[in-house]
């Protein structure tokens, strides 16, 4: 089995992030898994609306950086707190927020987990009880970062990795990213071949802009 025994690195698996300009009741929890063997099973849990698997499962090959992913999370949280969600929950809203266009099912296909996904990023938003959290009948006790971590380690058959730019950039499928965010026609970016770091940074800025202006 590819799943590491939890004793090796249990603490490093899930990163909890408090984003700026977001109500303190929201906490963002992110985990990264490489060489996932049961992507099909995980996607199936989403499709069957299994409430125990209310996560954003993201295909890491469409992601270039922490900033890109956290931007999508931020957008999903603002939409959620404003009560303007267009998809079933805050986690599907994250996947859609990665897209530069309004096609929701295309966003799931492009940025969400697929049966063939190898490396995935998992995001779980926790709403602290002080807010108007809706009661979940199947899961009476409020989940915490530690219960999420053990749940993920039990059900995701892959190797946990840190949620870092170094790890994320090793997964990035650039031809795919360039296609999804329409970076192929951008001549000045293509001519930037001699400075890979600068090119990545400039690409990231264009990606953030496309996400921010989705459908606007």
């Amino acid at each position: 089995m590819a799943a590491e025994p939890p004793s090796t690195a249990p603490a490093a698996c899930l990163e909890t992030i408090q984003l700026e300009h977001v109500p303190p009741t929201y906490s963002v929890n992110v985990a990264v898994f490489r060489d996932v063997e049961n992507a099909e099973f995980l996607q199936q849990q989403l499709l069957s609306r299994n409430t125990e698997f209310e996560y954003a499962f993201i295909d890491a090959t469409s992601i270039i950086s922490r900033l890109q992913l956290l931007s999508a999370v931020y957008k999903a949280i603002t939409v959620h707190s404003g009560g303007n969600m267009k998809t079933p929950n805050i986690h599907s809203e994250i996947v859609w927020s990665l897209s530069p266009n309004n096609n929701i099912s295309e966003a799931y296909r492009r940025y969400g987990i697929t049966p063939t996904s190898q490396h995935i990023i998992v995001v779980k938003i926790l709403l602290s009880p002080s807010s108007f959290s809706s009661p979940t009948p199947t899961n009476p006790q409020t989940p915490s970062p530690s219960t999420i971590q053990s749940h993920l380690l039990t059900h995701v058959r892959g190797r946990p990795c840190p949620f870092s730019d170094a790890v994320l950039s090793s997964f990035t499928d650039w031809p795919k990213v360039r296609k999804y965010y329409k970076l192929n026609g951008v001549g000045w970016l293509e001519r930037m071949k001699d400075d890979e770091a600068l090119r990545r940074r400039e690409s990231e800025m264009l990606v953030l802009g496309s996400m921010a202006l989705r459908g606007l």
Binding site: S71, G82, L208, G209, A212, L216
Partner: peptide
């Protein structure tokens, strides 16, 4: 400047 986020409302 690059655009990070927009809330037109």
């Amino acid at each position: 400047p690059a655009v990070y986020a927009v809330d037109e409302g």
